[in-house]
Nucleic acid binder design. Sequence first.
DNA 1: GCTGAAAGACTTTAAGT
DNA 2: ACTTAAAGTCTTTCAGC
Lengths: 168, 168
Amino acid sequence: MADSVVLDPVDLHILRLLQNDARTTYRELAAEVGVAPSTCLDRVARLRRSGVILGHRLRLDPARIGRGLEALLSVQVRPHRRELIGPFVERIRALPESRALFHLTGPDDYLVHVAVADTADLQRLVLDEFTSQREVARVETRLIFQQWECGPLLPPAATAPGRTEESE
Amino acid sequence: MADSVVLDPVDLHILRLLQNDARTTYRELAAEVGVAPSTCLDRVARLRRSGVILGHRLRLDPARIGRGLEALLSVQVRPHRRELIGPFVERIRALPESRALFHLTGPDDYLVHVAVADTADLQRLVLDEFTSQREVARVETRLIFQQWECGPLLPPAATAPGRTEESE
DNA sequence: GCTGAAAGACTTTAAGT
DNA sequence: ACTTAAAGTCTTTCAGC
């Protein structure tokens, strides 16, 4: 399930550049990597087809659009059965406050990353969308002081690059 | 700090479309929103200048590049002082396995989202980069079964859109 | 602040290696 | 699988409103 894809040094270089700025043009990629623009186009198209590249996302600053407070909510859903967790997941995903949702091992079943206006807004969200729901057995709220996105995602051993398992 | 920006319905419409696909062309945006392409260009440039749009990111599938196992590590850093947490944060951010890092309220100071090859790789990471470090008092590892990104990030009350606090 | 049109840049195709 | 070159499309500027 979801086998790895073979990536050569050209693919890795392109992925590294595009992760820094996904709007880098094929001409720029070509100049940096040392191949023709049409080759970059081919490579990127292949990376999309093979499922390595899932899409292009806009990064917004939540604080600039009135969501200056972020938090992580740990949630226990009981009983933890498919007929309850399916609707729970869909309901949480649809909340305008939700940024990400994780189904986890451990005593807390879900972790929800939310962005809200302020503590009053957070309290409203927790009370109205979580603790008031029958399937939610427990919620623990932690505020996010600060967060960082980390360096480009590359295959293991990309320091000595190019080696990955085979597939496709 | 990080005041909200005024967004009119045109801005909101553009942001919604670009969050669905950040590569949507100005011509397409223009057709959807009902303004000229050059107006969309102006709007997007203004959203970048005002800090609402932070950048364009490539979304990759970690499983396709040999990182088929993801986990969240809760970490206590003790003593929790600036001279220790600064280097800790920089070290964790620089790990190729790190996807995101959060500084949180609560008993666990940091949450680290990592992507690794398998459980052996995860064990190596936890032992070599976390529990072996002087400043790391405790690590709790939870595996990610499944994760979801959630709908477009919009201002509070974007159902009745357009109202946000003033700035700039 | 928006429009429309022109100029320039980039993307994409296709033939050739 | 890559390259070059040409055609098509998109971006970007700017004069005018």
